[in-house]
Simulated assay, not measured.
Amino acid sequence: MGGNKDTVTIWHNPRCGNSRGALQLLRERGIEPVVVDYLANPPDRATLLEVATDSSVGLRGLVREKEAVFAGLGLADADDDTLLDAMLAHPILINRPVVITARGTRLCRPPEKVLELLD
């Protein structure tokens, strides 16, 4: 889901203000990223693990704790394997936006974090 070394990829949810903001910042800088609707096309296990590691936030940092399904599944004290399984089964649990570039991978909350990958 990352692409080649020159590709900028964003895991995007158009309903999310942070995701829209990061996408706008990229486009304002002349970058047209590969936009991945991760809800319709979720990452596989290996990709999700790679992004969790590369972004330095880990699986716990990539999970959306405010989603109702998080509480419904009782994930507050879950281990990484359980979190990973839940995120794969329920992609809405994946935090966004994630931006993947040759310079690194970031969870761009707030959206301005994308700028760390551009300069």
Score class of each variant (00 low, 15 high):
Met1Arg: 00
Gly3Lys: 00
Val8Thr: 15
Thr9Arg: 04
Ile10Arg: 00
Trp11Gln: 02
His12Ile: 11
His12Asp: 09
Pro14Lys: 08
Cys16Trp: 01
Gly17Asp: 06
Asn18Tyr: 04
Asn18Trp: 00
Ser19Gly: 03
Ser19Ala: 15
Gly21Ile: 10
Gly21Gln: 11
Ala22Cys: 04
Leu23Asp: 07
Gln24Cys: 01
Gln24Tyr: 01
Leu25Asn: 06
Leu25Ala: 06
Gly30Asp: 11
Ile31Lys: 10
Val34Arg: 15
Val35Asn: 12
Asp37Pro: 09
Leu39Arg: 12
Ala40Tyr: 07
Asn41Leu: 09
Pro42Ala: 03
Pro42His: 00
Pro43Phe: 13
Arg45Phe: 12
Ala46Thr: 13
Thr47Trp: 01
Leu48His: 09
Leu48Gly: 12
Glu50Trp: 05
Val51Ile: 10
Asp54Gln: 15
Ser55Cys: 06
Ser55Arg: 01
Ser56Glu: 14
Ser56Gly: 10
Ser56Lys: 11
Val57Phe: 09
Leu62Phe: 05
Val63Tyr: 10
Glu65Tyr: 07
Glu65Arg: 14
Leu75Ala: 05
Ala76Leu: 01
Asp77Ile: 00
Asp79Glu: 11
Thr82Arg: 13
Leu83Arg: 01
Leu83Glu: 01
Ala86Glu: 06
Ala89Ser: 12
Pro91Ile: 05
Ile92Glu: 13
Leu93Thr: 14
Leu93Met: 14
Leu93Ile: 14
Val99Met: 05
Thr101Asp: 01
Arg103Val: 01
Arg103Tyr: 00
Thr105Arg: 02
Cys108His: 09
Arg109Lys: 12
Pro111Ile: 00
Pro111Gln: 03
Glu112Thr: 15
Leu115Asn: 07
Leu115Trp: 03
Leu115Met: 14
Glu116Ile: 04
Leu117Tyr: 09
Leu117His: 08
Leu118Asp: 04
Leu118Gly: 05
Asp119Cys: 03
